[in-house]
């Protein structure tokens, strides 16, 4: 997936990836990634958990807007269902 991100970035379009496999993301060299140590197949979280899913989207978009070096891997450390998720403050993306 990082390889696809790099091809897109190469034509001048910024990308942000969600990673469930930290070392692989680092080795391939995704331009920006948010890593969570969650079960494979669940990059945005659990089914029917919109606040968790929107929190991940927010985190990714926040990195998209704010990253200033290539290859940064953001690690928010969310603990799957042991964290409580709230509606993000989207105004912070402006």
């Amino acid at each position: 997936m990082g390889l696809i991100a790099r091809a897109i970035e190469r034509v001048g379009i910024p990308t942000v990836s969600i990673s469930l496999a930290r070392d692989l993301t680092a080795a391939v060299g995704a331009p920006r990634a948010v890593f969570v140590k969650w079960p494979l197949g669940h990059p945005l979280g659990e089914p029917h958990a919109p606040l968790q899913q929107r929190t991940m989207i927010f985190r990714a978009l926040h990195l998209l807007v704010n990253a200033d070096v290539p290859g940064v891997i953001d690690e928010p450390g969310y603990r799957w269902r042991r964290d409580s998720y709230e509606e993000p403050d989207w105004s912070r993306l402006e």
């Binding site: 379009i13 969600i18 494979l40």
Partner: peptide, 29 residues
């Protein structure tokens, strides 16, 4: 992998340009 990096991913990147895309979110399995 070479097919992906040399041909297919650049093809998608060109389509994104044609569609006026400004950013991409990628999600893995």
């Amino acid at each position: 992998v070479t097919t992906l990096t040399q041909r297919i991913a650049p093809e998608v990147a060109a389509k994104l340009r044609a569609d006026g895309v400004d950013f991409a979110l990628l999600t893995p399995a």
